[in-house]
Amino acid sequence: MVSRIVEDYRAQQEGILSQGFWALLVYRFSHRRLACRIPVIRQLWYVLNRILGKWIEIITGIMIPESATIGRRLRIEHFGSIIIHGASVIGDDCVIRQGVTLGIKDTTDLAAAPHIGNHVDIGAGAKIIGKVAIGDHAVIGANAVVIRDVPPMSIAVGVPAIVKSRR
């Protein structure tokens, strides 16, 4: 866990002052609770997670539930209005900017959240909704609304997003 936190710190351009780093720090701490098998400790840890998570959400405007799966070196370039659904998966070396939502399409399938590959760059205000897969090295343009899969090495822009090849 410590090595992941150090990697998260190094990935942030603002270093210790980065609010994205603090949100990831609380996420990493909270996510570890899922591996705890001692009921009393797990319950106390849950209460602490709820308090820290809400505090981070108020201070930074970033919501990352402990149930989300986040890879290594996620960089949150600008904080504020970032919502990540608990069933979302984010790969290694991704970049997320302000106003991004990774969410579900409707409440009938709470597990139908986005799966983001490695080295994905998500522009400000982008919305990735539903059970969609974003391929490795893809770029999601600012304010794009992605409701379909985006292949690797592609760019998705517009509302709804149109996918174009980067090759």
Rank of each mutant, 00 (worst) to 15 (best):
H85I: 09
I64A: 12
P152W: 04
F21D: 14
E66G: 11
C94W: 01
R50G: 11
Q19P: 09
G15C: 10
K105P: 00
I16V: 05
E7Q: 15
E14D: 13
T108C: 02
K54F: 15
N118W: 07
I147Q: 10
P160M: 02
N49S: 04
R75Y: 10
L102N: 09
A113H: 15
V26L: 06
H85G: 01
R72F: 07
I134K: 11
G61F: 04
A138Y: 03
A68T: 13
N49T: 03
L24A: 05
H119G: 08
P114H: 12
T108M: 12
A124V: 02
I162W: 08
A124R: 01
G99K: 04
I82Q: 00
A111L: 15
H85Q: 03
A111M: 14
A142C: 13
S88A: 05
L110Q: 14
A11N: 02
G117R: 01
I62M: 06
G123M: 00
R72Y: 01
I38S: 03
I56M: 13
V95C: 01
D121S: 14
S30F: 09
V2H: 03
V47C: 12
M63V: 15
S30M: 10
I41L: 04
V26S: 02
L102A: 00
Q43C: 14
R166K: 02
D121L: 07
D109W: 04
Q19S: 01
D93T: 15
G125N: 05
I96E: 10
A35L: 06
P151M: 09
E77C: 00
I16N: 04
I90R: 07
E14R: 12
I41C: 12
V40I: 06
R75C: 02
L110K: 11
I5G: 09
A161Q: 14
T108W: 08
R73H: 13
I70N: 08
E57M: 15
D149K: 06
A68K: 10
R4Y: 10
E77M: 03
I90P: 13
S18K: 02
R73P: 10
T107R: 00
G135N: 01
I140C: 07
V100T: 06
I5T: 02
G53W: 03
R167D: 15
T60W: 07
Y27P: 00
N118A: 11
D93G: 09
L110I: 04
G71F: 04
T107H: 08
R72P: 03
I62V: 01
P151L: 10
K127M: 14
T101C: 11
A112R: 13
A133Q: 01
A87Y: 04
I83H: 03
M1S: 11
H78P: 00
A35G: 07
I83W: 07
W45Y: 08
R33W: 08
T60R: 14
V40K: 05
V159H: 12
K127W: 08
H115V: 12
K131A: 15
V146D: 05
G158L: 09
W55V: 15
P152R: 14
G130P: 14
